[in-house]
Nucleic acid binder design. Sequence first.
DNA 1: TTATAATTTATACTTAATCTAAATACAAGG
DNA 2: CCTTGTATTTAGATTAAGTATAAATTATAA
Lengths: 130, 130
Amino acid sequence: MNKLNLTKQRKVILDLLQHSDDHPTASEIIERLRDQGHHFAYGTVYNSLKYLTEMELIRELKLGETASRYDARTDDHHHIVCKRCGKVDEVLTEVPAEWLKAVEQETAYRVDHAHVVLEGVCPACRIPQA
Amino acid sequence: MNKLNLTKQRKVILDLLQHSDDHPTASEIIERLRDQGHHFAYGTVYNSLKYLTEMELIRELKLGETASRYDARTDDHHHIVCKRCGKVDEVLTEVPAEWLKAVEQETAYRVDHAHVVLEGVCPACRIPQA
DNA sequence: TTATAATTTATACTTAATCTAAATACAAGG
DNA sequence: CCTTGTATTTAGATTAAGTATAAATTATAA
Ligand SMILES: [Mn+2]
Ligand SMILES: [Mn+2]
Ligand SMILES: [Zn+2]
Ligand SMILES: [Zn+2]
């Protein structure tokens, strides 16, 4: 409920994410900041990512890799990972509500949220190689 | 394709998992082994879990927590995590095949596998407190 | 038995992420 | 403009999960 405090560092990091077309990890973000001439402290990048996530300006993705990825897309959606090249793409097709109902029936949980991580092979990796 | 080599350590760990009704992490497994009087090296537990996973006798679960969990249930299924108490329960209801088809259409990926991690509140945590 | 390969063990190391304490920036109030 | 309190950044230390290494042990096979 607090008012947003976008420091220079937080703004730069948010901007970087909003102009990325992928889902970078913290260390990829640090690399890109370096490339842009910024030298924020390691901890600042983590703090900023946490702050932006709490403010719901970005989302933290845990896709089962060692490091979290970050996403400026904040609407509910899923992700698919290419098992060959590691590319992470968006999945906007929504999980059917009846399925969630069925899960509530089965488990007796109240279901708040579902995140699907799909694994597959991306179009580029499927092209036959010479 | 190699024949199974279940050493004493691997057997004990597999047995422990098969008799667990939850989804313990590696360090929880190490604790329980201690309680049973076993003192396997730290690395042996990790190696055994990796071996058993590769042999498909158990499955490694990455539910977005800091540590992997392990599951002796090897048929395809999903998981729901209670946001209050952290309990992890099984979800056997299968994701509709049409949904997977729709994702293939949307992304142009070939989809091999989908793992859903649901978040909700378990029945016990929903009981009104005094 | 002796040689060979696989596994376990103890320990060192890596990586992602958090914590800490000092330095810096920022927002009011006077 | 100056002073004071609060929030943030910084650099570096620390934690936690997991991996790597090399010596010791165990199992397999000639
Ligand atoms: Mn996304
Ligand atoms: Mn399970
Ligand atoms: Zn690919
Ligand atoms: Zn609960």
